[in-house]
Design a protein around this nucleic acid. Structure first.
Length: 437
RNA sequence: GCCGGGGUAGCCUAGCCAGGCAAGGCGCCGGUCUGGAGAACCGGUGGGCUUAUGCCCUCGUGGGUUCAAAUCCCACCCCCGGCGCCA
């Protein structure tokens, strides 16, 4: 949520920001908010004056028990009640509309409408490309370092019927669910364990979180549009299945004031994530790349405002070093203004190379939400001089487990032995070096 | 799920029965004092409106009664204790 003060003082900045987001339709909302705010301010002024008078008369009456005062007070009471109703309505209306405005973008965010205008900023690793896809590859990625292989496979070709069963899961749940078996389950555990160890070594506090949150808490973490497209609701309860541990970690300090010297607070959260994927019909329908239920080790930082951009770089660096250690090729892209969504001021995605798809695909998403979430969740810090302000919140995936399994299958399948070769750092956790298919 | 006790400012607490401007302590910040520090004393320490003086709001949340609600009534949320259920 934006600061109403910012809109009062600098409505043009807020409007320019909406243009960058390609949300011109919200520009009139800014004027509407200002209009309501002005009305509200004049009413609160009037109301305060009336209450002042009422309080005076009331105190007078307490002393004198003068019946004439009672008459006056009754008149005031009616007026006050009327105005109070109106004041409350206006304030609610204003704050409701405020929640629809996206965060102010950082100046580095590239202006662009869709995914195609995201800006790649760095690459890691030598990618595998199938012989028959070389031309297509060169057209898109030019002089990127690559290695030619005879044939590549989609993860689901390698997995389905052997280590996963999506067909049975679709019958008993719906599509986008799956059963996993044997060594893939152990690989899944290994990735979680390795991810937690990785962050613990970097002084992140490990946290296991509630998988359901109240509406108010979910709303503090995200924009309304997510409720329709992403988040599952529990019937007859004020509870929602979390789409990411990010929300539950944010909620850990809901309504709190944190002492300046305790910041930054760094967390490594592990949770299952539930997503409706309502807008994704027909996309990635096979396998476990895009599913309703997956697991994720999430990084989250509560930061002092002046340190948050440094923390932002730390988060993406952690994720990069994690994938470097697994030797999975990737690129980092700077997400453009039209794709970034409401919450983040700047966002990097880490996209792993998927040889079977001949593409980079999102595997990590790293955001600085500045004070947008903190304002809604009312999470503040107290300076040494006693002053209070909102913290900044940042989040980044460390490892999206199912997607990383997909990446491991596609990148490390050995055609000759028909085995998946487990990346070195994981062997300590899996206690096997290959998955035979 | 039932019975009982609770929720008051950053924290701790009084006020509630019996309605009348939210008292006190701790912590923190500033000042006086000091060579410096401490102690002591004074002031400040939630939100909003206001150029400002100042005014209003805030006692878990939301309603209601009243000239006036932390206080009375209703509903809900949460915490503690006991009983019940339970991996």
């Amino acid at each position: 949520m934006l600061d109403i003060e910012l809109i009062r003082k600098n409505p043009n900045l807020v409007k320019e920001n909406l243009k960058k987001h390609f949300k011109e339709n919200l520009i009139e909302l800014v004027d509407k908010i200002l209009e309501i705010d002005n009305k509200w301010r004049s009413i609160i002024k009037e109301l305060n004056n009336l209450r002042k008078e009422r309080n005076k008369i009331s105190r007078e009456y307490a002393k004198t028990k003068n019946e004439n005062l009672l008459k006056k007070a009754n008149e005031l009471k009616e007026k006050i009640e009327k105005l109070e109703t109106e004041e409350k309505k206006l304030k609610e209306e204003r704050d409701e509309l405020l929640k629809h405005l996206p965060n102010i973008l950082h100046e580095d965010v590239p202006i662009g409408k869709d995914e195609s205008e995201n800006v790649p900023i760095r690459y890691f690793g030598k990618v595998k490309v199938a012989k028959d896809k070389i031309e297509e590859f060169k057209k898109e990625f030019g002089n990127l370092e690559f290695e030619i292989v005879e044939k590549t496979y989609n993860h689901y070709e390698l997995m389905e019927g052997k280590v996963i069963n999506s067909f049975k899961a679709a019958q008993v749940s719906t599509s986008r669910f799956y059963y996993m078996f044997d060594k893939v389950v152990k690989l899944w555990l290994a990735l979680i364990h390795y991810g937690l160890d990785f962050l613990e070594k970097r002084n992140y506090k490990i946290v296991y979180v509630p998988d359901m949150l109240r509406r108010q808490i979910e709303e503090s973490a995200t924009h309304f549009s997510d409720f329709e497209e992403m988040i599952y609701k529990i019937e007859n309860e004020d509870l929602y299945l979390i789409p990411t541990a990010e929300h539950a970690i944010l909620a850990l300090h809901f309504n709190e004031i944190i002492e300046e010297e305790k910041l930054p607070l760094k967390y490594a959260g592990i949770s299952v994530c539930f997503r409706k994927e309502a807008g994704a019909h027909g996309k990635d329908t096979k396998g476990i790349f895009r599913v309703h239920q997956f697991d994720k080790v999430e990084q989250f930082i509560f930061s002092k405002p002046e340190e948050s951009w440094k923390m932002f770089e730390e988060l993406i660096k952690n994720a990069e070093e994690f994938y470097q250690s697994l030797n999975i090729p990737y690129r980092v892209v700077n997400i453009c203004s039209g794709e970034i969504g409401y919450v983040a001021a700047k966002k990097y995605d880490l996209e792993a190379w998927f040889p079977g798809q001949n593409k980079f695909r999102e595997i990590v998403s790293c955001s600085n939400c500045t004070d947008w979430q903190a304002r809604r969740a009312n999470i503040r810090l107290r300076r040494k001089d006693g002053s209070i302000e909102f913290v900044h919140t940042l989040n980044s995936t460390l490892v999206a487990v199912q997607r990383t399994i997909c990446a491991i299958f596609e990148n490390f399948y050995d055609e000759k032995s028909k085995c998946i070769v487990i990346p070195k750092p994981l062997v300590k956790y899996t206690e096997f070096e290959f998955i035979e298919l």
